[in-house]
Design a protein around this nucleic acid. Structure first.
Lengths: 115, 115
DNA sequence: TCATATACTGAAAATTTATTCGGTATACCG
DNA sequence: CGGTATACCGAATAAATTTTCAGTATATGA
């Protein structure tokens, strides 16, 4: 895993929390896993703009941070499933409030950022 | 301002909200401005790890997105102050929940990320 | 046999973000 | 006069993140 040259002060609780979810797809992955565990290929179907590679990299970090759990089934063709942990689930209220904020204020940004 | 070559789908409310606060210092800036308006030099004292340049760049984006307001006093030496807007203030509950989550779970990450 | 699908990985390239450095301008103070 | 401080900006560089591409291995089905 990449080791930062310029460290971030994670003793700041805001930065600690942000650091766990602020990459491009982590918050979306947690949101997708809220109801059901998913295989990597299913996750890619749910988030088609994310390449399988980046999903793989970010899932690995989420697992490493204890927010997501991975189950490997020793079958062929290979099968694995990712599910949200209790720790990851405890972040969902934060994501919920972000989703609600985004829905409430969407129109303010519609023109500025074409959507 | 830099224009992305690979656009992000901001019609997703989660990604819209994230896009407004997920750069390195924006959430910290909003947190600093919650009680009082600040001059750039004061903000730099409050966040000494952030260079004046990056504060300047991120303040400009925050102003552009309507989360922060800028007041210029036509004095010399120049003086300007940044304050949080009502829109920016409406994000503070989200930051509060991130701060609370980080405080609650800090010990889980203490060893992994030296702090 | 050959294409397909699965999960995953390494490495290089591209993209995005942050840092560093030097410069604008003006007033105050010693 | 020369140093300090203010806010700000352009450009080059560096750092960090994401994308692209090619590859591992094995079973299934046409």
């Amino acid at each position: 895993m990449y080791e930062r040259k310029i460290p971030v002060d994670l003793s700041c609780p805001l930065r600690l929390t942000m650091s766990l979810i602020d990459s491009k797809w982590k918050s979306c992955i947690l949101d997708e896993l809220r109801d059901t565990s998913m295989r990597p290929s299913e996750l890619h179907k749910a988030l088609p703009e994310a390449t399988p590679r980046v999903l793989d990299l970010q899932l690995k970090e989420l697992v490493d941070d204890g927010l997501v759990a991975k189950t490997i089934y020793p079958e062929l063709p290979p099968r694995s499933e990712y599910s949200i942990t209790e720790l990851g689930r405890s972040l969902l209220p934060i994501l919920d409030s972000m989703i609600a904020w985004g829905e409430t204020n969407r129109e303010l940004f519609e023109k500025k950022y074409g959507m």
